[in-house]
């Protein structure tokens, strides 16, 4: 039962799967940070319409299952509405997976950042306004820099959740490691060793996520703002 031969026999395919997972996670990390930062700027803006938009976005996206978001992107937008990034199907599915995952994770990044903004003493913003900085300037130079530093550790958790969420992209026809594993198991020649295969993939994820957690913990300590 604990014969790891099937895992090693298919290790080439599994490694390619992990590479696809990494490409998805990397792009989604960058894009979701951007989306989250923009949305949190909306949520704390002095203009009510912007605040409503930010709140609406977060509430809708955060409360929709990721599978639905990704299926909407791949089946709905890509296949039916034919909004394609590229004529190569693997490329367009990749980018739709990135967009869907980032839009979803962005809502969580936004809320994490907002909690960071709430930890900053009100006096910081008042001092920024009192020397004549506009709202955008004080957000960019005073508020967000301090907010980012205070939420590094919880942002690590959001990122870890996002890395694991990449497996849902299998539903959106993106060939990351979970889809690869399922394909291996579904092969008619595959007879035994499902559990070792799953264990191997799980360890692969640990190799991705554990260092992420440690890195963010270390970074949070290093970047802390002394008050």
């Amino acid at each position: 039962m604990f014969d790891f031969t099937p895992f090693f026999e298919n290790s080439g395919e599994i490694l390619r799967g992990f590479w696809a997972t990494l490409r998805l996670a990397g792009a989604a990390a960058v894009l979701s940070l951007i989306i989250g930062t923009v949305m949190v700027s909306f949520r704390v803006a002095p203009v009510p319409v912007m605040r409503k938009f930010g709140t609406g976005y977060v509430n809708i996206v955060r409360n929709t299952p990721l599978t639905l978001v990704l299926l909407m992107c791949s089946l709905g937008l890509n296949d039916i509405l034919a909004l394609k990034f590229s004529s190569v199907s693997s490329t367009t599915y990749y980018w739709w997976a990135v967009v869907g995952l980032s839009a979803y994770t962005g809502a969580f990044v936004c809320e994490t950042l907002r909690s960071g903004i709430n930890t900053i003493p009100l006096g910081q913003a008042e001092a920024a306004r009192s020397i004549g900085l506009t709202f955008t300037q004080s957000l960019r130079m005073i508020i967000l820099p301090q907010a980012f530093r205070s939420i590094i550790a919880p942002m690590g958790s959001v990122l870890i959740a996002m890395i694991k969420n990449t497996t849902v992209a299998a539903a959106a026809s993106y060939g990351e490691v979970a889809l690869v594993t399922k394909t291996i198991v579904d092969k008619p020649t595959f007879s035994d060793g499902v559990i070792p295969l799953f264990l191997g993939v799980a360890i692969g994820f640990l190799i991705l996520t554990l260092p992420t957690g440690y890195f963010f913990g270390w970074l949070a300590k290093r970047m802390a703002v002394a008050r």
């Binding site: 006096g123 910081q124 001092a127 009192s130 004549g132």
Partner: peptide
């Protein structure tokens, strides 16, 4: 913002950018 630039303000809790 322009007006505030001409009016200096010193707070009880200093509020230096940390």
């Amino acid at each position: 913002a322009k007006l505030r630039a001409d009016v200096g303000m010193v707070f009880q809790s200093f509020n230096l950018f940390a």
